[in-house]
Write a protein that binds this DNA or RNA. Sequence first.
DNA 1: CGCAAGATTGGC
DNA 2: CCAATCTTGCGT
Length: 168
Amino acid sequence: MGDRLPLDFFLRDVLDVAPALPGKLLVRQFNDGRVERYRITEVEAYRGVEDRACHASKGRTPRTEVMFGQGGTVYVYLIYGQYWLLNLVTGIEGDASAVLIRGIEGFPGPGRVGRELQLDRSFYGESLIDSQRIWVEDAEPVSEIRTAKRIGIEYSGEWAGKLWRFYL
DNA sequence: CGCAAGATTGGC
DNA sequence: CCAATCTTGCGT
């Protein structure tokens, strides 16, 4: 079992943080005290106000507010009225970047991740450094990280072509 | 205030 | 292919 990833891990460019996440352990302590560790298998980087695929490109709104703050926090949002998608905010204040957790071992797909982890709006802004219910732990380095285009953002023009998806 | 679209999933 | 289900940003 590794150590919890410290604040410094998240205070870097999202393009440095995202590829470092596959293989690491996403840890969740549920209400009944049960602790589960899930190996992260797939993520995507969303890089600030310039990245048209990033929600922060809409500007600072109640929804994107947390992304504009310092990294090391959780950004969750409900999509299609059904799934809570989990993002880890990265960078220094103002970077407005985050990593979408697209898959964990046994639960591929961002919607499935949120369902397995029983996420809801109360996780918005949660600190990955202090939280007693969700955090990330270090693990053995993985051999190879693959890259691909991000999924479901065809509307974002040139940004749709970036190889900002990272997976095992 | 109304409305269309959404970083998805599962079923037909 | 398409419905589910509801929040959000934007236009009127």
